[in-house]
Simulated scan of single mutants.
Amino acid sequence: MDSAPLPEVHSAPRNSLSVTFAVWNALFLREAVARLSATRGAWVLIVLEPVLHVSYMLFIYTAIRAKSVAGADVALWLVLGMTGYFTVQHIFRRAMGAIDANKALFAYRQVRPIDTVIVRAALEALLGILVLLALLIVLAFLDRNITPSEPMETISAFFGLILSAFGIGLILSVVSDFAPEVGNLVSLLFRPLFILSGVIFPLSSIPVKYREWAFYNPFAHGLELLRSSFFPIYHAAPEANFRYLYGFALVTIFLGLALQVRFAQKLRSK
């Protein structure tokens, strides 16, 4: 007796959104493995970088017998500034090189250049959050108060920093792909931001007539707002505000997306 024929199985077609999430998931896992295993102990260096900078600056502040900065605990003040700045720096630098580093993947039509930028930025943002949490836990064990006075402002400030860095990364990923020299120029231009963002000194100490120039930098707004959200008596610079931080983020993200759409085909075939 002949066996009955097997019923035909029709796989339901996936919509574009599910395909996009599948691509992001695969790219995220690929980037995470590459980032954490690029060199021996690469994951240690991710944490060690801000730790060494914080330790160095804490030693200097201890040597001059400073236990607080503008009304804030110096150790926590430095941790917030360092981790916030390095998260920003890693996001836009890694996003800037995302398209060039993943050219081979564009042979798959599901993978678009913008996907690689989004995934790299998301990975660096996640690593930055994890490093910040790890350092805060260490400070808690050292009997430091790590509870923010305004938790929602803390989240908003850090998220604003991430979005601003992502917007810059979107733009630079396109520009640097057409002109590789831009990458070296950007690294040179962004180096002074370590000082101008108030990472190692309070921006409120700058004379008023010069301070407004420092606050053209969105990261100065983000770091100042992040710190003020932790300390109720922190003497923050009055120029820091969320409107500028998120306005800069929205403008740069819009311009970055416009460039990605406009040059999508050229980025694939270049």
Results as ranks from 00 to 15, higher is better:
Leu161Met: 07
His10Cys: 10
Trp77Pro: 09
Ile46His: 08
Gly183Lys: 15
Leu127Arg: 10
Gly169Lys: 02
Ser68Ala: 14
Leu225Asp: 07
Leu127Ile: 15
Val174Tyr: 03
Ala240Ser: 00
Gly71Cys: 05
Leu45Trp: 15
Leu17Met: 13
Gly256Arg: 07
Ile195Gln: 08
Lys266Ser: 12
Pro148Gly: 06
Gly160Asn: 06
Leu132Met: 13
Phe248Arg: 05
Gly169Ala: 02
Val199His: 01
Ile114Asn: 09
Phe248Trp: 06
Ser68Asp: 10
Leu255Lys: 09
Asp73Trp: 06
Phe201Thr: 00
Arg144Asn: 04
Ile195Thr: 10
Val9Met: 12
Asp115Cys: 03
Gly222Lys: 01
Lys103Gln: 15
Ile206Glu: 03
Ile129Gly: 07
Trp43Cys: 10
Thr116Ala: 07
Met96Gln: 12
Val19His: 07
Phe219Lys: 07
Val186Ala: 08
Glu224Phe: 04
Tyr85Asn: 09
Trp77Gly: 07
Val54Met: 12
Phe263Met: 01
Phe28Asn: 07
Leu45Ile: 14
Arg93Pro: 06
Tyr85Arg: 02
Arg35Gly: 05
Leu80Pro: 00
Tyr108Glu: 09
Tyr61Ile: 03
His235Ala: 14
Glu181Lys: 12
Pro50Phe: 02
Ser173Phe: 05
Pro218Gln: 00
Arg40Pro: 11
Leu188Asn: 11
Tyr61Ser: 06
Phe230Ile: 00
Ile162Arg: 04
Phe106Leu: 01
Gly247Gln: 07
Met1Cys: 12
Leu250Phe: 14
Gly247Phe: 03
Leu226Gln: 02
Pro50Ala: 05
Trp213Cys: 11
Ser16Asn: 13
Asp100Asn: 14
Gly81Thr: 05
